[in-house]
Amino acid sequence: MAASQVIRSEWTKIRSVASTVWTLSLAVVVSIALGMLVSALSRSQFDQLSPRDRLSFDPTYISFAGMSLGQLAMIVFGVLVVSNEYSTGMIRTSLAAVPQRGTFLFGKIAVAAVLALAVGLVTGFAAFFLGQAVLGPHRAGIGDPGVLRAVLGGGLYMALIAVFSMGVAAMLRSPMLSLGILMPFFFLISNILGNVDATKKVGRYLPDQAGSRIMRVVTPIGDDTPYGPWGGLGIMALWVIAALAGGYLLLKRRDA
């Protein structure tokens, strides 16, 4: 089957499954709603901030606070895109139709990645503009230095989270096992490693910790992170490449 046919087939599969539509919708709603809530709280407490905290105040990053939960929906989306076919047994039919396993896997990932990027960009811009509206006098403008990069980076970050999850799901094949590992890792373990002094230097190289750097405009006082916004996104991209490579190698070697 030609690559263009594989892409059309995968697009049909993705848009015909209700769960993928719901998870993407949830990612948008949660990210925007929580970002607006945190922005409102930040505005109400701004006058109580110390001079040091005011210097580290990052209105752009505050509006992206909801992405910490929204990314969990993107993880579910990425896992379901790949592992649904294993749980239903459709993988045998798919591989019979597309025997070139690399074409099959990367066609699926390409379609899902473009969709995740589109949703991520919509989420990033909506979260930014609505969050800044709530922040009022403390808001940032899209034309301020570093702000457009952060907003676009937010969309890229959400897409990379989804693609990383696809790679992990391709390796593990089971939706329950994939979610059972990814959800605690991103929601709990990564935050612990990134905030405990003994493990902070290791935690900053995890995919979400490194990638979220792209959404920062103001560097917190005392922050000694050895990479910048694009460096952090590059580290995250390496994690994604490793996950996709692992998924491809295992798909190539295993039976359906």
Rank of each mutant, 00 (worst) to 15 (best):
A2Y: 12
A3N: 05
S4C: 01
Q5R: 11
V6H: 15
R8Q: 05
R8D: 01
R15C: 06
T20P: 02
V30E: 04
A40N: 06
S42N: 08
R43A: 03
R43M: 05
S44Q: 03
F46P: 02
L49S: 05
P51R: 10
R52Y: 06
D53P: 04
T60W: 03
Y61F: 09
F64V: 00
L69V: 06
G70W: 00
A73M: 03
I75N: 00
I75M: 10
G78R: 08
V79L: 00
V82Q: 00
E85C: 11
Y86I: 03
R92N: 01
R101C: 03
L105N: 02
A112F: 14
A112C: 13
A113M: 02
A118W: 00
T123I: 13
F125V: 09
F128V: 10
A140S: 14
G143C: 12
P145D: 12
Y157R: 13
Y157S: 04
A159M: 06
I161G: 10
V163P: 02
V168A: 05
A169E: 05
R173L: 10
M176F: 10
L182G: 13
M183H: 02
F185G: 03
F187M: 15
F187N: 15
I189Q: 12
S190T: 01
S190Y: 14
N191L: 13
P207V: 15
S212K: 15
S212V: 10
R213Q: 10
R216S: 13
T219E: 14
I221N: 10
D224F: 09
T225G: 05
G231E: 04
G231L: 09
G231T: 13
G232E: 00
G232W: 04
M236I: 13
A242I: 14
A242D: 08
A243D: 02
G246I: 06
L249H: 13
L250M: 05
L250K: 12
K252E: 07
